[in-house]
Design a protein around this nucleic acid. Sequence first.
DNA 1: CATATGTCCTGAGAGC
DNA 2: TGCTCTCAGGACATAT
Length: 277
Amino acid sequence: MPELPEVETMCRGIRQVKGRRISRVSTPKCSLRPIRIAPSVSAIQKCLRDEAILDITRLGKRVLLHTEEYALILQPRMAGLVSLGVAPSSKHIRLQIDFHGEPDCRLLYWDRRGLGSVELIRNDEVQSRIVVGRLGPDALQITSEDFATRLAKTSRAIKVALLDQKLLAGVGNLYASEMLHVAGIHPATPAAQLSKSRIRRLYNAMQDVLLTAIEHEGSTLSDGTYRNALNDPGSYQNQHRVYDRAGAPCPKCSAGIVERIVQAQRSTFFCSRCQKT
DNA sequence: CATATGTCCTGAGAGC
DNA sequence: TGCTCTCAGGACATAT
């Protein structure tokens, strides 16, 4: 579930480890199937031991911890998170990073379903290995012109196009439904068919929804999986207009009922009364 | 090339 | 109550 707002919240929440020197990288013993970690944990430890974390950045839905030479890339996918020593359960802690002189503050990568991954590459490889061919411009960095140009090139339904990380990085299933509702656009509308003014509305809705969600520290759904770096839930779920609200009255027009459809094997929520093709 | 589908994984919740 | 079944969806591999 972590999308741009949740990953951004993770990055902000662990900012205090900036400047600390790594003493140990380890995997707590775990009865679950191991997640994908490359290279091995011992190889990662060899590269990172005694190195300082100089920067923490976000690339789409990934968290990057930078040392002078390396980037440790944490990709939470569906059910992962990065935290400061506390996690929803100890059973699912997949990676632990300890620091010199800070016995009480460690960095954890926690992942309930183990679909996420950890990867160490050199900083100078980030562009070629992670960005090129995988990630489009970040949803909070892209210009409205570039956004319009990219959407004009695909015949796919707008909701499906928004989930394509090569087209635009950071938007996931939850926020795609939310921003389309704010913009009043039916999720099945072919992207290339949208007028310039409606694309502009969608762009503004995207900025607004993502920034507001960051202010609320993301969305913690009913499964409670997502937490911020201190293990507290986000609060944007209380602002959801349509996501996971099928059957409820539309918060915008009150006359419509929120509907659920499936697009590209994923749930989409919308109000057919205020969202038109 | 563009687009569509299958797969990974665990836990929550439904249904009996 | 305890079992089985279905579902959640990000990103990649593979197919069309």
